[in-house]
Design a protein around this nucleic acid. Structure first.
Lengths: 214, 214
DNA sequence: ATTTGTTTGAAACGGACGTTTCAAACTGCG
DNA sequence: CGCAGTTTGAAACGTCCGTTTCAAACAAAT
């Protein structure tokens, strides 16, 4: 407890984020993680207690960044603006959060990659992710949609519309294996942020209003 | 070559469909498939030549059923009907195809489960699946959307709208791990086929029309 | 400098997997 | 019945995985 063991541990954690994000939990091997971190195979068990504990550490590590992002977005959202404008802001922020890449290679942010891997292959940790990543933004969207529709948030049509919108948000990620293989592949959202956002806003608003007179 | 080896081979194939559909290619084990089929571990290699060859046999086996379904749906689609009506028919048919369960336990048809597994964890076989399952229906949808929008099918807005619609079709499947874990879980589409179809048609038509004057 | 506690490294363990082996059982045919 | 070809079954093989072991290297404190 006297020295700076943080170096190896942090290197290991960073390597684990990269490997888990690209391969998923089961396909990732501790040997590859250790090799990428320049550490010994036993390092994972010594510093974290095992592969599963390392994975949980990764989830907690990326979660604090996501929560900060959500707080930042939440503050920007003006509660007094009209609901339609708030929907636009909501969609724009989510699109930016998901698809804006700070990294040079244009790859998705690792926490979204890991999130997708969990959805595709759910483990016990998905409950934690939904509770902390998904629930609050989803409730927020439901409130906005309910206000546009002028119905209570418990109305089933609100849930339907909210899911249609969340679906459109995550689809480019989920469907990428498909769209990349089609004869007319979809251009990467990362390269068309503004255009994609604009389409989503118009299409979604049009869809919601079409559900209005019920 | 004189006897009916078809019995063991077919039992093995049926078991493989079930196991691959629930676990995916990598997570599925030859031992479990053989155990479910009441066959020896060596049976897979003897009858199919290995796990991967068995998987390809499964894909080809379920593909002939899917192609028959698509032909049946294609015949029903009246080319002379107005585009909006054809969109409604298209959506209704796809929703039924995907979510209507003939099996008693309400589980998704196995070919869709396997398809989803491939999307989540793409292998070389996904190219085959996209080419034969996805490409034609996707082109069909693009034609319908282009007609409603009164623009050529090559217009980018057509692709955007078509993807928004395909996204809504597959979302309940893909997002199920999420929606099941939320405080307001979405009711299973299987139990609300008509309601879900109606929402999708109205929402999508509203969305498309909102993109019209562009 | 010696001791004490912490971190690393090479090697091995135990288990699960796909696959192979080969003898036994079975089938159809003369 | 007896034989040839086909199919099965039990056991083992080789590989890769996560994990454990334990001695060596290291850092800090007396």
């Amino acid at each position: 407890m006297y020295n700076n063991d943080a170096n190896t541990k942090n290197t290991l954690l960073a390597a684990a984020v990269r490997v888990f994000a690209t391969k998923g939990y089961t396909a990732a091997t501790v040997r590859e993680i250790c090799s990428l971190a320049g550490a010994n195979v036993a390092a994972v068990n010594y510093h974290f207690g095992g592969k599963e504990a390392l994975y949980r550490s990764v989830l907690e590590h990326i979660f604090i960044r996501v929560q900060a992002e959500q707080n930042r977005a939440g503050q920007k959202l003006d509660a007094n603006a009209p609901a339609e404008k708030r929907l636009e802001t909501y969609i724009r922020q989510k699109v930016e959060d998901i698809y804006q890449t700070d990294n040079d290679d244009g790859s998705i942010a690792s926490h979204w990659a890991i999130f997708l891997m969990e959805v595709a292959n759910p483990s016990n940790n998905l409950d934690f992710l939904v509770e902390n990543y998904v629930q609050a933004p989803a409730d927020e969207l439901r409130a906005i949609v309910a206000e546009i529709l002028e119905v209570p948030a418990t109305d089933p049509v609100v849930l339907d519309c909210a899911l249609s919108i969340w679906g459109q948000l995550l689809d480019p990620l989920v469907m990428m294996p498909l769209t990349d293989r089609m004869t007319h592949p979809r251009p990467r959202v990362q390269d068309n942020l503004k255009q994609f956002t604009e389409h989503m806003v118009r299409f979604s608003l049009g869809g919601i209003k079409a559900m209005k007179n019920g």
